[in-house]
Design a protein around this nucleic acid. Structure first.
Lengths: 356, 356
DNA sequence: CTGAAAGCGCTTACAG
DNA sequence: CTGAAAGCGCTTACAG
């Protein structure tokens, strides 16, 4: 006696043939009933659909892809989703895929080093193309993907190929703007709270900040952090407080909000007040940056523009004939590296006194 | 003259036949070289692999699935990923899939109402099974999936079928524990800040809270919120401050942290102090709950236990013979609804005075 | 409007 | 150890 409810064994799955038999038609008609291609009498179609529903059959998309040589799949390379711009961007992207009847096949990179391997695995699935949101795209890999007729869209990183599509936040501009704000307040001693030295985004933000200050004859200190977390921000606050009061920076630019928020918390109770003694600007415009205890001036990344750019590119790739000019994002520039850079948006709050 | 670099046309993708020709072997050997199944001379294998790499060919996983009748795919139903337990849980799940060479096929639900439709679409792909993290699984749909031999794993919701796997946070226990803490502090006027009336998790948390208080002869007010955001929390604070001081609740349980954090911000500057005048407990243990300005007592959801449970189930489904007893999460109970409920973990901070 | 047949790119017995 | 052949479940010309 079995304790588990009886089950019609792994059900050697029904096929269109079974449906055809049950509906008393040829197997080809079953295909036509579902695809809408080819002529079929309306009543026949209805009958087939009804029988299929009873049996619980739907065309096997894998088999269909074999015949047509085209699967409605898109590869998406991503990495840790939690509390990251990726989660937000992916939500938008996946929503659009759903509307376009594209199925995203996810490739999860534990670390950036795995990205090239995942890119290679991608090809087994003969997808329409690949969206990359993690790691680096090697040139040879980009060429391999594009030469198959797939699209390649890189988000917040270079595509490393003239035919790849690539769109990113204009990080240097953000850094320069931060410098402008702090200089406008009359600050004189500057500090950049940065991520790891090899972080692409963080480094570009610092570069812009250094540039902007340099034009006014100033130069910031740069403190690198192994992780861009609130904990790192707390540690930076301790480091600042350890300096003699007259040597402490008074104009701080953090290359992300998490560090900035931790930094603000680390200064609480120290006697240093914001923005009297010190101004601070973050990057990301996290929800928390607008919360009462923070009111952090920050840069919002142009995530919507980036998503639209990718969707435009995928759309153009699917319908090359209808090659309408891609809807360029409002504020952007085309980099020498082929990347479309979209300006971040400055959100002024209480941790600065400046106007632009 | 073309401005676009020449491109060997949509490259009518190479096949194993092309590789075979180039390596001077039969097409079957190419298959064996990659699959490792069947005998093949090591030198032959090496030569084939080398040729394939040059051509940039890999076995077409779609075609392979046709023959073997089994694709290494898993359907995952999800919804908005940003700032949600889903992002965290998915990260873990996807990491494990990657290690097990399973490809997740994502189905994105714009709203819970779409979930059943997505569940139906799922079957076109003949995946190994489906993981549901959004909406409700109708009984008939569960039966349809399971009768195909696929697995069905529901996260934080009922599976609605005796053979489905389902694991969730034990919400009522959290609510009861919140009541115990607030009662232990000697609080006397209670308030629950809840989500929408039809929110499964929020309602269960309130139920537990009401139960726990009821045993001590108390009854809380319950304020429902259409969205469980910090903004809603701010509004609740206003509502509380509008009450005459002697009618204001002094023991508050919020069914998520976002509302609790907004509520705390809403009380700032009002003269009400925490935890002197009022205690508050949240749910989720968001990173922000430990930040200096909040120090919110909260419940951590047993996400790791839930992920492990799902992975165990998938593993058992793939290797039914090695049916080792599933590693039961430490603290859990089996509900009459077939759901494995894992206790949340109370994290005491400064918004309560209580000990358990 | 309907059906018989070819074929998509692989894997896997089955012979050699 | 290698190869020829069948067949997975569909779609799509091609006849009728």
């Amino acid at each position: 006696m079995l304790t588990v409810p009886a089950r019609t064994s792994p059900a050697s799955a029904a096929t269109s043939r079974d449906v055809a038999k049950a509906a008393n038609v040829s197997q080809a008609l079953v295909s036509r009933a579902f695809s809408g291609n080819g002529r079929i009498a309306p009543e026949t179609r209805d009958r087939i659909l009804k029988v299929a529903a009873e049996i619980g059959w739907r065309p096997n998309a894998l088999a269909a892809s074999m015949v047509t040589g085209d699967a409605p799949l898109v590869s998406v390379i991503t990495t840790r989703l939690s509390f990251d711009w990726r989660a937000q961007v992916l939500s938008h992207l996946l929503k659009a895929f759903e509307a376009w009847h594209l199925q995203p096949l996810l490739f999860y990179a534990e670390s950036d080093r795995e990205v090239d391997r995942l890119l290679a695995e991608t090809i087994s699935w003969r997808t329409r193309g690949v969206v990359v949101t993690a790691g680096v795209v090697p040139e040879a890999r980009a060429e391999a993907i594009l030469s198959r007729g797939q699209f390649l869209a890189a988000l917040n990183r270079p595509g490393n190929h003239p035919e790849a599509f690539s769109i990113a936040t204009d990080n240097p501009i953000g850094g320069r703007q931060a410098a402008t704000v702090l200089l406008g307040e009359g600050r004189g001693r500057f500090l950049a709270l940065a991520g790891p030295e090899d972080s692409w985004a963080s480094s570009r933000r610092v570069d812009g900040f250094v540039d902007g200050l340099g034009q006014a004859g100033h130069q910031p200190m740069v403190w690198h952090n192994a992780t861009m977390t609130t904990e790192a921000g707390l540690a930076c606050a301790d480091r600042l407080l350890a300096l003699p009061p007259n040597e402490r920076p008074d104009g701080v630019f953090s290359t992300n909000d998490a560090i900035a928020l931790g930094f603000i918390d680390g200064l609480r109770g120290s006697g240093m007040t914001i923005p009297q003694d010190l101004s601070i600007i973050g990057f990301d415009n996290l929800p928390a940056s607008s919360w009462t205890p923070y009111q952090l001036t920050s840069f919002e990344q142009p995530l919507d523009a980036m998503v639209l750019g990718v969707l435009d590119h995928i759309h153009a790739h699917q319908q090359p004939e209808a090659a309408q000019p891609p809807s360029a994002p409002e504020a952007h520039r085309l980099g020498a590296d082929g990347v479309i850079y979209c300006a971040p948006r400055l959100v002024l709050r209480q941790t600065t006194r400046g106007q632009l």
